[in-house]
Design a protein around this nucleic acid. Sequence first.
DNA 1: ATATAACGTGTATTTTTTACACTAAGTAAT
DNA 2: ATTACTTAGTGTAAAAAATACACGTTATAT
Lengths: 229, 229
Amino acid sequence: MTEITPGFDFAVSIDCVLFGFDGTELKILLIERNEEPFKDWWALPGNLVDHDESVDQSAQRILKELTGLSDIYMEQYYAFGDVNRHPQGRVISVAYYAMLRLGGDKPLKPLSSYAKKAQWVNVASLPKLAFDHQNILNKGLEKIKRRIKHLPLAFELLPEKFTLTQVQSVYELILGKKLDKRNFRKKILSFKVLKELEEKQRGVSFRAATLYKFDKRKYNKLFGKEISF
Amino acid sequence: MTEITPGFDFAVSIDCVLFGFDGTELKILLIERNEEPFKDWWALPGNLVDHDESVDQSAQRILKELTGLSDIYMEQYYAFGDVNRHPQGRVISVAYYAMLRLGGDKPLKPLSSYAKKAQWVNVASLPKLAFDHQNILNKGLEKIKRRIKHLPLAFELLPEKFTLTQVQSVYELILGKKLDKRNFRKKILSFKVLKELEEKQRGVSFRAATLYKFDKRKYNKLFGKEISF
DNA sequence: ATATAACGTGTATTTTTTACACTAAGTAAT
DNA sequence: ATTACTTAGTGTAAAAAATACACGTTATAT
């Protein structure tokens, strides 16, 4: 931080890695661009930061414009600042991730003209992405791999009521490996942040599993104690 | 990432949290500003990113300008983007930390005119800082607290040859708590990344401790296995 | 010789992690 | 009603890791 004279010819953008879980697969939200550069390419949803909004506010605005959702917890995880990452000028991009509850009522709001459409895409089978977005996404994946070991990210991805098997699936997808069912349940229950409901899963063609809820209140009380997978 | 038209009126700066260890205390490098705004205040070393250098390159350049050191591993950890964080315009600051070996030959190069002087300051007794630098620093401290549990940051702070007690001191300072000597040694040696030397500490007025070296080669082979404190 | 200050070491206990497989419950088809 | 199918749900023993804890050793300084 020094003299001010030279700079002020940068743009700053936000790119969002929005994770979703459809019950089986880990997805991210991509848009198909309708403008140059990279017209017709798939890209992470993003936008330029306005002059009078903070970077965090900008991330919230962009999320809302795309999905209609507000009050979603987004976490900034890295700033991408290579000289040639944007073909039309010097653009620094600040990347955020968020975990969204898919399923049911995802509007995917009317998009601004810059995108033809938005779509949830399986993380395991992505198209080629515009700009350095593959790179941004990879770093995002790395981050949540680390953070899901300490933070209750999985529950943001799941519906309000969920089964333990679903929780396990989320961990397995993000960590990229199978976990032992009995040990997983023992561990996740040992944190005492899940509340067992009277209710069972419905609409499945086999034995219905017990539903659980994430108890935010109890989680907040853990404070300091480390959750660790 | 979208249309390009509106933006390009931002500046981007780097701020560096440079940690050092003098054998007793955890220090960071501060500069005393010689220019408005915040003339005469203490601040983190930093500077604006040039138009034709990447954010990472800029961090390296700034570090070199200040300390004469190159090839120091710096890690980006957060971008600060509040609207009013800089009184003279919209400046996004990307923060990096690095661990430096203090002691002996720290030149602290001739500073550019923007700083009157640079000085290592005990983290435990900091002056008021310019801009949002206290905030930037706090977040940096949080980050290394987490990361020192998984990454060999401590050895970057220590001289090439060090005693186990010194390693323990670094962990204690960063984690902010006392550790048990025997358990600490058992654990740190269990990772097998320290090489015991034939050599002993010199110039101390009590029993000299055995010196150790960090074995980067062995550390790199751990790959995947988690070091964890 | 003596005092001093940090060095260096081991064990027993508790906690956590891991490996591992079968019965129970519900649905669907015949 | 029986059967076949699919996932739910559960416990234990062994191994590994974490913790708590105290004293003789060695070098220096006086």
